[in-house]
Amino acid sequence: MSKKADRKGGLVLQYVLLGVLALFCWLLQSAPGGFAVIAGCSPVLLPVLTAAVGVYYEERAGAVFGLLCGILMDIYTVPSVGFHAVVLTAVGVVCGFAVKHFFTHSLWAALVLCLGAALTYFVLYWLLFKCILGGGGAWFYLVRFSLPAALYSGAFGLVFCPLVRWLHRRLSFA
């Protein structure tokens, strides 16, 4: 009984901490003034965080986390009605599924999936908003801004993966 309660308490604490982390990342990435802008590229942190959550908490938790983060991003970026929610949910599911079936549970796998998530997000964003709906110079935009920003964002996996792994291991009391 006590073990069960401990496990439940640990899970609640983990979800609360992940929620706080997501809010913090969202505030950072969407803050007016820009967060850590390098050569015109600023990182988008939530897809990477979603990938890390998908890797360590598996696809169902990854999907829910991705959906919530996506909705959070969608609320404040009107042109992307539903875009972020869909992409981030997919990122959570795919990362959880991939690590279960195609990768071993290692930090390297998590980092690769985070980078993949960032690349997927930025390429889809470019495809929809710059290639299809945007003006000219889409290829230049992809090479000059989208891909460097994806790599830059993916590098934040170095922070998120150990952090989420620590949360998952340390607070899983059972």
């Binding site: 990435q29 969407s30 007016p32 988008v44 935009y141 920003a149």
Partner: peptide, 15 residues
């Protein structure tokens, strides 16, 4: 008041 930026947009669009 500027409430949020679209971090993925290099053109600097905001809400």
């Amino acid at each position: 008041i500027v409430t949020a930026r679209d971090g993925a947009d290099a053109c600097g669009s905001f809400s």
